[in-house]
């Protein structure tokens, strides 16, 4: 019985130690943003591998999601004779929810897993140790530029997703199903509010950018440096990112309403 309590205590201490370590590393990484300003080249390079390379999948997915929203929304709205509101339905779903959330999930799968694998392999092949021995701090040189690039890229990707999605909804709704073009846009403009909807969507995607990129970078940096360890860390990145993004989405939505 006593052993059992001791085990719980030990696990709790272990948990807090890990949490504290992670928070400290996060702060250290954030502090490393400051000197990065002098080296924009590093950030540009990372925006390329994190953002530009995710652009295609985000745009194509956004287009399809918008078309599906157009179809589904039309079929539901037409029963109430309210198909003129299709633009509102498509735009609000995308801007407030699907844009930030689906982008974050795709980002975790596309860029997050790649980041974890990259950093994990750098650890496994002693590149991180090598940097330390060359008196270059891997937190400054490897973690910080990647985290910053993720934070910059995510809101831009989410905006692209939403914009392309609204266009996809337009193609299906207006060109295919015959919703009036004027009402598609004007109802949307009347109902979508800049402060309430657009800004909140951008805030969400920013938060998701921080969280998803941090999980990816942290899992890579702390993984067990073997091929099995790296593959597990990559899986964990995708799973944790998805769970945390969806959980946070509920929390943020509740806070913003």
């Amino acid at each position: 019985m006593f052993d059992w309590f001791a085990q719980i205590g030990k696990n709790a201490i272990e948990f807090y130690a890990r949490l504290g370590k992670e928070v400290l590393l996060f702060i250290q990484t954030l502090l490393a943003f400051v000197p990065l300003v002098l080296r924009p080249g590093l950030i540009v390079q990372q925006i390329y591998s994190v953002g530009v390379r995710s652009m295609l999948i985000i745009i194509v997915s956004g287009f399809f999601v918008g078309m599906v929203l157009g179809l589904q929304g039309y079929n539901t709205l037409v029963d109430f004779g309210a198909e003129e509101s299709l633009g509102v339905v498509v735009a609000l779903s995308l801007v407030r929810e699907l844009g930030p959330v689906v982008t974050a999930l795709l980002f975790a799968g596309r860029a997050g897993s790649a980041l974890t694998a990259e950093i994990g392999l750098m650890k496994a092949t002693e590149q991180l140790s090598g940097l330390e021995m060359m008196a270059v701090n891997p937190v400054d040189r490897i973690l910080a530029p990647r985290l910053l690039a993720g934070i910059i890229s995510m809101p831009l990707l989410a905006a692209m997703f939403s914009a392309v999605g609204i266009f996809g909804g337009y193609l299906v709704g207006v060109d295919l199903l015959g919703v009036d073009e004027g009402s598609y846009w004007s109802q949307m403009q009347a109902k979508v509010d800049f402060d309430q909807d657009i800004v909140n969507g951008v805030i969400k995607s920013f938060v998701f950018g921080v969280v998803a990129t941090w999980i990816a970078v942290y899992e890579g940096y702390t993984c067990i440096p073997t091929s099995e360890g790296v593959s597990r860390a990559t899986t964990r990145t995708v799973v944790y990112s998805a769970l945390v993004v969806l959980g946070l989405d509920f929390l943020l939505t509740a806070l913003m309403l």
């Binding site: 392999l121 750098m122 090598g130 940097l131 330390e132 021995m133 008196a135 701090n137």
Partner: peptide
């Protein structure tokens, strides 16, 4: 301290088993 340590490391070179070149 970390900063001092990084200064000292500039006076050392290390050759890793794998080479540890940046890929």
């Amino acid at each position: 301290k970390t900063k001092k340590l990084y200064d000292v490391r500039k006076k050392m070179g290390m050759l890793f088993q794998s080479g540890a070149l940046l890929t």
